[in-house]
Amino acid sequence: MTYKAILNGKTLKGETTTEAVDAATAEKVFKQYANDNGVDGEWTYDDATKTFTVTE
């Protein structure tokens, strides 16, 4: 399944996708990606669109 992350960081804005077996696995991948890029904020998840959003 393909999951998407939308990054609304102070220094990084954009989107990325990952293939994962479930939302929990995708969330770990996206949170690591955000952390590696200095983005730390509030996370939300929309199951209907399989989209995570982080906003700083």
Results as ranks from 00 to 15, higher is better:
M1G: 12
M1D: 14
M1N: 14
M1C: 14
M1E: 13
M1P: 12
T2S: 08
T2F: 11
T2H: 09
T2Y: 11
Y3P: 05
Y3V: 05
Y3F: 13
Y3S: 05
Y3C: 06
K4R: 13
K4G: 03
K4W: 10
K4V: 09
K4S: 06
K4I: 12
A5F: 15
A5S: 03
A5I: 15
A5W: 11
A5V: 15
A5Y: 09
I6D: 02
I6G: 03
I6Y: 07
I6K: 05
I6P: 02
I6R: 05
I6L: 06
I6S: 04
I6T: 05
L7M: 10
L7V: 10
L7I: 15
L7Q: 01
L7W: 15
L7G: 02
L7E: 02
N8Y: 10
N8S: 08
N8F: 10
N8R: 11
N8P: 03
G9M: 10
G9P: 02
G9V: 09
G9K: 03
G9L: 13
G9F: 14
G9W: 06
G9T: 15
G9R: 02
K10H: 12
K10I: 14
K10C: 15
K10Q: 12
K10W: 10
T11H: 13
T11E: 10
T11Q: 10
T11F: 14
T11C: 15
T11A: 10
T11P: 03
T11L: 11
L12I: 13
L12C: 15
L12H: 14
L12A: 08
L12V: 14
L12K: 11
K13T: 10
K13E: 06
K13R: 11
K13F: 09
K13Y: 12
G14E: 10
G14T: 14
G14K: 12
G14Q: 13
G14M: 15
G14S: 12
E15Q: 11
E15M: 13
E15T: 13
E15S: 11
E15D: 05
E15A: 09
T16G: 04
T16Y: 15
T17N: 06
T17E: 10
T17D: 05
T17K: 08
T17M: 10
T17Y: 14
T17W: 14
T17S: 11
T17A: 08
T17P: 01
T18F: 13
T18W: 08
T18C: 15
T18A: 08
T18Y: 11
T18N: 03
T18L: 11
T18D: 02
T18P: 01
T18G: 02
E19A: 08
E19K: 12
E19F: 15
E19L: 14
E19M: 14
E19T: 14
A20N: 03
A20H: 03
A20C: 07
A20P: 01
A20L: 02
A20M: 02
A20Q: 05
A20S: 07
V21C: 13
V21I: 13
V21A: 12
V21R: 12
V21W: 12
D22N: 09
D22W: 01
D22V: 02
D22F: 03
D22S: 07
D22E: 04
D22G: 03
D22C: 05
D22L: 03
A23M: 11
A23Y: 12
A23R: 12
A23Q: 11
A23H: 08
A23G: 04
A23P: 11
A24M: 12
A24N: 08
A24G: 07
A24D: 10
A24Q: 12
T25V: 09
T25C: 07
T25P: 01
T25Y: 06
T25L: 07
T25Q: 12
T25F: 08
T25H: 12
A26E: 00
A26C: 01
A26F: 01
A26H: 01
A26Y: 00
E27C: 14
E27I: 10
E27H: 13
E27P: 00
E27R: 08
K28M: 12
K28S: 08
K28R: 12
K28Q: 11
K28I: 11
V29E: 07
V29C: 08
V29G: 03
V29S: 05
V29R: 09
V29D: 04
V29P: 00
V29M: 09
F30P: 00
F30M: 03
K31D: 02
K31N: 03
K31C: 07
K31V: 07
K31R: 15
K31G: 03
K31A: 05
Q32E: 10
Q32D: 08
Q32M: 09
Q32N: 07
Q32S: 10
Q32Y: 05
Q32G: 06
Y33H: 04
Y33D: 02
Y33G: 00
Y33F: 12
Y33R: 04
Y33M: 08
A34Q: 01
A34W: 06
A34E: 00
A34S: 04
A34V: 06
A34N: 01
A34Y: 06
N35V: 13
N35G: 09
N35F: 15
N35S: 14
N35P: 01
D36H: 07
D36E: 13
D36N: 08
D36I: 10
D36K: 08
D36A: 12
D36M: 10
D36V: 08
N37A: 12
N37T: 06
N37H: 15
N37K: 12
N37I: 14
G38H: 09
G38V: 03
G38M: 06
G38R: 06
G38C: 08
V39N: 02
V39S: 02
V39L: 13
V39T: 03
V39D: 01
V39Q: 03
V39Y: 08
V39K: 01
D40V: 14
D40W: 14
D40G: 10
D40R: 13
D40P: 04
D40M: 13
D40C: 13
D40N: 13
D40Y: 15
D40L: 12
D40A: 11
G41E: 00
G41D: 02
G41Q: 02
G41N: 03
G41H: 02
G41R: 01
E42N: 10
E42I: 14
E42T: 12
E42R: 09
E42G: 05
W43L: 03
W43R: 00
W43M: 03
W43V: 03
W43G: 00
T44S: 12
T44E: 11
T44I: 09
T44N: 08
T44L: 08
T44R: 08
T44C: 09
T44D: 08
Y45E: 01
Y45M: 00
Y45P: 00
Y45N: 00
Y45G: 00
Y45L: 02
D46T: 04
D46Y: 04
D46C: 08
D46N: 10
D46K: 03
D46A: 03
D47S: 12
D47L: 07
D47C: 07
D47M: 09
A48Q: 11
A48E: 13
A48D: 11
A48L: 12
T49G: 03
T49V: 05
T49L: 07
T49S: 10
T49K: 07
T49P: 00
T49W: 04
T49M: 06
T49A: 06
T49D: 04
K50P: 01
K50Q: 10
K50A: 06
K50E: 02
K50W: 05
K50G: 05
K50S: 05
T51D: 01
T51I: 06
T51H: 02
T51V: 06
T51S: 04
F52E: 01
F52A: 02
F52K: 01
F52R: 00
F52N: 01
F52D: 01
F52Y: 05
T53Q: 06
T53C: 07
T53A: 05
T53G: 02
T53D: 02
T53Y: 13
T53R: 06
T53K: 05
V54A: 03
V54S: 01
V54Q: 02
V54Y: 07
V54C: 12
V54E: 02
T55V: 09
T55I: 09
T55W: 09
T55P: 01
E56V: 08
E56S: 07
E56D: 08
E56N: 05
E56M: 07
E56G: 06
